[in-house]
């Protein structure tokens, strides 16, 4: 049972959280002008890094999305920050 720090609620058990996406991906817009390949890349392709990873998570209990930095091997959590307004 991992403990994740919600920036709003503090440390909570992992079952309260849901992984949303890798961080740093902006929705390409206007989407109508994005190529099929470009859209697929946005929608489906990712790094899935082994080691340090910056990810968007949501704390299901409070509904807030946030950025968590953690290690995908050791599971050590090294950072947790609220989304600063909009991502774009």
């Amino acid at each position: 049972m991992q403990l994740f720090p919600c920036p709003f609620c503090g440390l909570r058990e992992e079952t309260e959280f849901h992984f949303a996406a890798e961080a740093g991906k902006a929705r390409p817009e206007p989407a109508g002008q994005v190529s099929d390949d470009g859209w697929a890349k946005y929608l489906y392709f990712q790094d899935s890094p082994k080691g340090r990873s910056r990810e968007i998570w949501v704390h299901l209990a409070c509904g807030e999305f946030f950025v968590m930095t953690r290690d995908t091997v050791t599971h050590e959590v090294t950072g947790s920050e609220a989304l600063s307004g909009r991502s774009r």
Partner: peptide, 9 residues
């Protein structure tokens, strides 16, 4: 919630 926090104020 995701769209609200991701692309709206």
């Amino acid at each position: 919630e995701e769209w609200r926090q991701d692309r709206f104020d």
